[in-house]
């Protein structure tokens, strides 16, 4: 409180009118700053939409990439590949993340839960490329073979901290009395948690899950040396697999005009997927099924 008192406005020699003018312009400046982010988002979305819409059609969404110079070609295998990889990552990360979140919410005191939280926060800040290197070292290098599984593993590590913290907060926000009432009625710990606590926290848990999926759907860096990419339809996750973000990246840095067009088209599909996931996540949280 003392520090604040020293900073408190002191009487000024200039008049009230000038102070009000400064206040007005200061406020206007902050408004301009707040709109910069929003305007940039609109500009980027606008560019991607205008440049990309010409490339997107049914053939583009459902066919294999064409060699340079040939017309047509698309991102069909990339969409499938990204779907498989993100799906696998979700299967890996969701159970572990939810279990850790439950653990932290129910037994969250002491040095070990603190350590889990600390590591989770740190993990969420580790650059995705470093996580990709880790996946390479443990799942690609020993087998001398790029694979979608290794990419899913890297994605799962990126998703874990998000799932863990959102599910912890979700479960924590369920009134303790509900849990105590269920236990007092003789339900086991497991049944209480799964049938009483988790359903009450479900919307927030699903929101966290959707946000974590959105986070990795557009992720490119770890894919470079895990999933690697492929020009074929590939359904076996033990093999290298085409990935949409990787296709956008490779088309963008290529020297060919027609591939740049494909990059914009792919970016449009990617950004729509990510935005839909984000909006969906909000919608789940604010919907009426919240108890």
């Amino acid at each position: 409180m003392m520090a604040v008192a020293e900073n408190a406005p002191r009487p000024r020699s200039y008049g009230l009118a000038i102070r009000h003018a400064i206040s007005f312009f200061g406020t206007a400046l902050t408004a301009v700053c707040a709109s910069i982010g929003a305007i940039c988002l609109l500009i980027i979305l606008g560019y991607v939409a205008v440049q990309g819409i010409g490339a997107v059609n049914w053939t583009f969404l459902t066919s294999l990439p064409a060699p340079v110079g040939e017309p047509g070609g698309g991102i069909g295998n990339g969409i499938i590949g990204t779907g498989i990889t993100v799906g696998l990552a979700t299967l890996l990360a969701a159970p572990i993340g939810l279990a850790c979140g439950l653990y932290l919410a129910l037994f969250g005191r002491g040095w070990f839960p603190e350590a889990v939280r600390f590591l989770s926060d740190v993990l969420s800040g580790i650059p995705s490329i470093a996580i990709g290197l880790f996946a390479y070292v443990v799942l690609v290098a020993p087998f001398h073979h790029f694979s979608a599984v290794s990419a899913a593993f890297a994605f799962a590590l990126l998703m874990l901290p998000i799932i863990l913290r959102t599910s912890e907060e979700a479960v924590r926000s369920v009134p303790r009395t509900m849990r105590e009432a269920a236990l007092a009625l003789g339900l086991s710990e497991f049944v209480t948690t799964m049938r009483i606590v988790v359903p009450a926290a479900r919307p927030a848990i699903i929101t966290g899950l959707l946000l974590s999926i959105a986070r990795v759907t557009g992720e490119t860096a770890p894919l470079l040396f895990t999933a690697f990419g492929s020009p074929l339809w590939e359904n076996n996750p033990l093999n290298p697999m085409a990935q949409l973000p990787l296709q956008v990246y490779n088309y963008a840095i290529s020297p060919y005009k027609s591939w740049h067009q494909q990059a914009w088209g792919g970016a449009l599909v990617l950004i729509l997927a990510v935005l839909v996931l984000n909006v969906l996540a909000r919608a789940v949280l604010s919907s009426r099924w919240r108890r």
Binding site: V48, R215, G218, E219, T220, V248, Y249, A263
Partner: peptide, 17 residues
């Protein structure tokens, strides 16, 4: 919300733009 959506834009799209 709009400013937070900016964080959701994939980095490859930022790179392309």
């Amino acid at each position: 919300f709009v400013i937070e959506l900016l964080a959701a834009v994939p980095s490859v799209v930022f790179g392309l733009w």
